[in-house]
Nucleic acid binder design. Structure first.
Length: 425
DNA sequence: TCTGGGGTCCTAGGACCC
DNA sequence: TCTGGGGTCCTAGGACCC
């Protein structure tokens, strides 16, 4: 009888990705503690090993980490998503050479299906991937290989802590894997977050090994189907298949916290309109149209009296036209605005997105042809001459809600002046 | 003083229907 | 006295991820 081939899934994860991107252009910071901040310079979202060792926590607000940053002379960067996106694309392109079956999981992670690739030595193979990425792009990665995504994640954690930077469970005995799982806290398991780990610890499941032998019906009764799948995956049963094809997204959110608190309705409207314009541009560039629009404004969630006001609008005809959408969003602000509150965040969510070409042509669609053309002209102009060259009047910029970004490296890979200079002997 | 943004999926509960 | 029950659909909110 022919045995089914065991799956081989490798998870490639860039180490401290945003920090690594900044370091590419600042080789002097190679061994220095470095952190990268979220939008508005709010929280720490990427840390170098040295910064982790200094005790700086993931997701910590900058002001809370100030003491450690000063003490250890940590270098701080605002985020530069254009740069990270560019380097991400380069890493992914190289990875594709090692397996055409690749799932681009996030900006700094990809799953490679190596099942059908002729490999004699799995560790040597993933080690080579690691070396090529480092040599060609300059980004350090860790790679874990196993028979399921969840186990590949575990292997990747091990890889991150090892000198080799790679770890594989494929050629190892189950007893070896079990020993690893015994040291692996439930909280670290992919899919087990803060709440679930609390629940499992309360029920005396502390590590991945304990969790993988839990009674299935008990899990199903007391938790969700996703958790059950996760547990199957720890037992080498594949429940999360790789997704190789591009699937259109279902939602598009654009939101920002304000640099300074906002009280006036016109300032709120201006922010919402600008987010609406950005979201409309995004969905147009992906060939999507929106059926339901949510507009939300919020006060500071860390203060008493936190208020979140939301308005949902179902559009009679799905669209991606900025002018229509701006109108809808602006009216939505009117309908939810409460005077006297101090707002700290606003945003729009486009839901029920659909691929435009698939959307059934309706009786009125021909009316939009001129507007479609207008949108195309505006988008093309903005690509050519820079964002916001052509916009709608309601989006006047008075900078009231502009983002804080005071530590930016301003690296732009499309400018020659940022190309690093190498001096040879 | 200062606390990110953008996604997905699941579930509980309400409304409604037969 | 006794107040069905099951199915579907929708939505808000929660939990998770990076």
């Amino acid at each position: 009888m022919q045995q089914t081939k065991r799956r081989v899934i490798a998870l490639v994860d860039c180490n401290s990705f945003y920090v690594s991107c900044e370091r590419l252009f600042r080789p002097d910071l190679k061994r220095a503690p470095v952190v990268v901040l979220s939008n508005n310079d709010g929280c720490i979202i990427s840390r170098s090993t040295e910064a982790k060792q200094a005790g700086i926590k993931m997701g910590e607000p900058l002001f809370k980490a100030k003491y450690l940053i000063d003490k250890y002379k940590v270098k701080v960067f605002s985020s530069n998503y254009e740069l990270y996106g560019d380097l991400s694309r380069r890493v992914m392109k190289v990875l594709k050479n090692f397996s055409p079956d690749i799932e681009f999981y996030s900006i700094d992670e990809a799953f490679l299906d190596l099942t059908n690739i002729q490999i004699d030595n799995i560790e040597a193979y993933i080690k080579n991937i690691r070396e090529v990425i480092l040599r060609w792009i300059g980004i350090p990665v860790s790679i874990g290989a196993a028979s399921t995504k969840t186990l590949a994640k575990v292997a990747n954690h091990v890889a991150k802590k090892s000198q080799k930077g790679v770890e594989e469970f494929i050629s190892k005995d189950q007893s070896y894997v079990d020993e690893v799982l015994k040291t692996f806290p439930v909280r670290e398991i992919w899919g087990i977050g803060k709440q679930l780990s609390k629940f499992f610890i309360n029920n005396n499941f502390h590590n991945a090994f304990q969790l993988k032998s839990v009674d299935n019906s008990w899990v199903r009764k007391n938790s969700s189907v996703v958790v059950l799948k996760t547990i199957h995956e720890l037992n080498n049963i594949c429940c999360f298949p790789l997704n190789f094809s591009y699937t259109a997204r279902k939602n598009c959110i654009v939101s920002r916290s304000f640099g300074e608190k906002i009280i006036e309705i016109n300032d709120l409207k201006e922010a919402v309109v600008n987010h609406c314009i950005t979201a409309a541009e995004r969905i147009r560039s992906e060939g999507l149209i929106v059926k339901s629009v949510y507009v939300f404004i919020k006060t500071n969630k860390f203060k008493d009296g936190y208020t979140s006001l939301v308005k949902k609008i179902d559009l009679p005809i799905a669209t991606n036209n900025t002018l229509e959408l701006v109108n809808v969003c602006s009216k939505a602000v009117d309908s939810i605005y409460v005077k006297g509150l101090s707002y700290s965040k606003a945003g729009v969510l486009f839901g029920e997105l659909e691929v435009k070409d698939n959307y059934e042509k309706n009786l009125f669609s021909h009316l939009n042809q001129n507007l479609d053309y207008l949108m195309k002209v505006i988008d093309d102009t903005n690509v050519k001459f820079g964002r916001g060259t052509v916009s709608v009047a309601a989006a006047r910029i008075n900078n009231n809600y502009k983002m804080k970004r005071s530590h930016s490296s301003k690296i732009d890979t499309s400018f020659l002046k940022f190309v690093p200079i190498v001096k040879t002997g």
